[in-house]
Simulated assay, not measured.
Amino acid sequence: MKIINVVGARPNFMKMAPIIEAMRSYPDHFQHLLVHTGQHYDEKMSESFFVDLGMPTPDINLGVGSGSHAEQTARIMVEFEKICLREKPQLVIVVGDVNSTMACTITAKKLGIKVAHVEAGLRSRDMSMPEEINRLCTDVLCDYLFTTDHFADENLAAEGVPADKIFFVGNVMIDTLLKHRAMAATLDLGRQLGLAPQGYATLTMHRPGNVDDKNVLTGILEALAEIAREIPIVFPIHPRTRKMAGQFGLDGFFSTGPKVQGLWITAPLGYLEFLHLNMNARFVLTDSGGLQEETTVLGIPCITMRPNTERPITCEVGSNTLVGNSKEKILEQAHRILNGEIPRGLVPEKWDGHAAERIIQVLLEKPC
Rank of each mutant, 00 (worst) to 15 (best):
M1E: 00
M1Q: 02
K2Y: 03
I3P: 04
I4S: 05
G8H: 05
M14K: 02
K15D: 03
I20T: 08
I20W: 01
E21A: 14
E21Q: 08
E21R: 08
P27C: 04
D28S: 15
F30A: 04
Q31I: 05
Q39N: 08
D42M: 00
F49V: 09
D52Y: 13
L53N: 12
G54F: 00
P56L: 00
P56C: 01
T57D: 15
G63Y: 03
S66N: 09
E71Y: 04
E71C: 04
Q72V: 08
T73C: 12
I83V: 14
Q90F: 07
V92F: 08
V98L: 12
V98S: 09
T107D: 11
A108N: 10
H117M: 12
R125E: 13
R125C: 13
P130D: 00
R135D: 10
D139M: 12
D139F: 01
L141R: 06
L141E: 08
D143V: 00
H150N: 14
N155T: 14
F167Q: 11
M173Q: 11
D175V: 01
A184I: 00
A185V: 02
D188N: 12
Y200W: 09
P208G: 10
I220R: 00
I227T: 11
I231E: 12
I233C: 03
F235Q: 06
P236Y: 06
H238M: 09
M244Q: 15
M244S: 15
G249S: 10
G249M: 12
D251W: 03
G252L: 04
T256Q: 14
V260A: 05
Q261I: 07
Y271A: 01
F274Y: 10
H276R: 05
L277W: 01
L277I: 00
L285I: 14
G290E: 07
T304P: 08
M305C: 05
C315F: 05
S319I: 02
L322Q: 01
S326I: 06
K327A: 07
L338W: 05
L338A: 10
I342R: 10
R344E: 13
V347A: 08
E349H: 11
K350W: 06
W351P: 02
H354P: 06
H354G: 10
Q361I: 00
